[in-house]
């Protein structure tokens, strides 16, 4: 499974959007969003510079920036090393990289639990080398942070 397909929409650094967002394409947030995000069949990525204050529902959610709100992914949810999430998270497959900051509950919504970590793959936590290794790892996203499949 590849959570990211074609990039369709980007909210770039410096752009602020207040309101509800829904649609049928993937979305990258590097700017700020304040509202609600609903992408039933698509993916949301919050880039390292992204700031989201919203409840989010999407098929796949990847967070490398800051989110205040609840995150619900019907498939995959990833919190990367630089992620700061204040809110509850839920997903069928949850991946949290060491170094991510989370204040909230975690719910895995399928019988098969697949929480992966860099620790599981032997990477050194919190060290720059860990992120470099992750950055140079081949796509797809599933291989970046652990072994969820």
């Amino acid at each position: 499974m590849q959570p990211q397909t074609a990039l369709s929409s980007v909210i770039s650094t410096g752009v602020i959007i207040r309101g509800d967002i829904s649609g049928s394409s993937d979305l990258l947030v590097d700017g700020q969003v304040d509202g609600v995000i609903h992408l039933a069949e698509n993916s949301l990525s919050v880039g390292p510079q992204g700031e989201v204050k919203a409840n989010v529902e999407a098929k796949n959610i990847i967070v490398a920036g800051r989110v205040e709100g609840n995150l619900v992914a019907t498939d995959r949810l990833e919190l990367r090393k630089s992620a700061v999430v204040i809110g509850d998270i839920a997903g069928a497959r949850v991946t949290i990289e060491e170094g991510a900051f989370l204040r909230g509950s975690i719910e895995v919504r399928r019988a098969v639990v697949a929480v992966a970590s860099t620790a599981a793959s032997g990477a050194v936590p919190d060290a720059p080398a860990a992120s470099a290794a992750a950055a140079s790892a081949p796509a797809p996203a599933a291989s970046l942070f652990g072994t969820t499949e």
């Binding site: 880039g47 720059p128 950055a135």
Partner: peptide, 20 residues
């Protein structure tokens, strides 16, 4: 640019940082 490439790109700088 691919969404993930953008995310990875920001980490590229980390390669140059000496490992403590």
């Amino acid at each position: 640019m691919d969404m993930l490439q953008r995310l990875r790109g920001s980490r590229a700088a980390a390669k140059a940082t000496p490992v403590a």
